[in-house]
Computed example of a mutant assay.
Amino acid sequence: MGDTATMESGYVFDTSWEREHGRLLALEEIYDSQSRHRLTELGVADGWRCLEVGCGAGSIARWLAKQVGAAGRVLATDVDTSFANTHGLSNLEIRTHDLRADDLPDASFDLVHARAVIEHLPDRDEALRRLVAATRPGGWVIVEDFDIDGPTEPAAAGYYPGYTEPAERLGRALRAAFGAADVAPGTGRSLSQALTDAGLTEVGAQVHAPVRTGGDAVFLPLTLRSLRPRLLATGEVTDWDIEDVITLTKNHGTTYLPNFMVSAWGRKPV
């Protein structure tokens, strides 16, 4: 999930779409640096056992495998693992797994990480409970999810004249489309409280708001094209609105903000 889906019901992206792999790679290009920074700050090191839930195209799982070395191990899971590859890393295992239904090893991991996963699950509290249960006492859980209800809209900065209203309509359509699929658009902002409620300590959170320059990334255009049928079904936008915002993201010299990504972390009590 994270990057693809750890479930079928409620996941808004079509993993069979011909450009889905490219969309996942674009997501990694924008958000991996923040994920790696936070994982490093939590102390991931040689010999650690790590679980990457919703591994998507696998970049963070491969990075973790390099950090933990030959003495460590990384288990990367997803419902659809077709985009993930070990790239020959012998300490990395990729496994098809549904977080909602399939068991995980109990109290086995020094680090459990899930990005853009929890927001797609209908029972988010139970999903967090499963992640915490898989973490050893003293280990870390880090969860990252979007805040689609946040103060930014896609293409929220650097408007050219005439783009403000289409972008605002698109923001409403995104929230409606995700809500119709039982995706919680404000999951990001609630993560720190959710981790506290799950019994973790030393809980912290940080917002990542990457400012993009027009023409330098394809994540937002590919995401909007993937979601186009769902967005149009809301009645909030027209096809022209979607294309107007995509055009804005391609204009060199303008800037735009994808939705905020919130990283939250906590430690399982010893």
Rank of each mutant, 00 (worst) to 15 (best):
A217W: 01
P210F: 06
G199Y: 08
G215S: 10
G215V: 03
F219A: 14
T223P: 01
V218T: 10
V207G: 04
V237N: 08
G235A: 07
T201Q: 13
A233R: 07
L227N: 02
V237C: 10
A233F: 04
L224Q: 01
E236D: 14
A198R: 00
V218H: 11
R228Y: 03
R225P: 00
V237T: 07
L200T: 13
R230V: 01
L200V: 12
L200E: 03
L200A: 09
T234D: 05
R212E: 15
V211F: 07
R225V: 01
T234K: 02
T234V: 08
Q206A: 15
G199F: 03
T196M: 11
L232C: 05
E202M: 06
A233V: 09
A205I: 05
A217R: 10
V237Q: 10
V237H: 10
V237S: 10
R228V: 01
A209G: 08
R230Y: 11
G199N: 07
G235M: 03
L224R: 00
P210L: 07
H208M: 12
R228D: 08
D197I: 07
V237A: 03
D197Q: 15
A205H: 11
G199E: 03
T223Y: 07
P229K: 04
G214A: 11
T201H: 11
R212K: 14
T196K: 14
A205K: 05
R225T: 10
A198K: 00
V207W: 13
A198N: 02
T196S: 12
S226R: 05
E202T: 06
T223D: 12
G235F: 01
V218E: 14
V237K: 13
R230G: 02
Q206N: 04
A217Q: 14
L231E: 11
V218S: 08
T234F: 00
T213S: 12
R228W: 04
L222Q: 12
L222H: 09
T234G: 03
R230T: 06
T213K: 11
A209K: 04
G214M: 08
Q206K: 10
R212P: 04
Q206D: 15
L231F: 09
A205D: 08
D216A: 11
T196N: 07
S226T: 08
L224S: 06
R230K: 14
T223G: 14
T196P: 00
G235Q: 02
G204V: 08
L222W: 12
L232P: 05
E236I: 03
L200Y: 09
G215D: 13
V237R: 13
G235Y: 02
V203M: 06
S226K: 02
Q206P: 00
T223R: 04
A198M: 00
D197Y: 05
G214Y: 12
L222A: 10
R228Q: 15
G204E: 11
T201W: 00
P210E: 12
T213D: 14
A217K: 05
G215E: 08
H208D: 12
V207S: 10
R225W: 05
L232R: 05
F219N: 15
L200S: 05
V207Y: 10
P221F: 06
R228N: 06
R230S: 08
G204C: 10
P221Q: 11
L222N: 02
G215R: 09
R230P: 00
A209R: 10
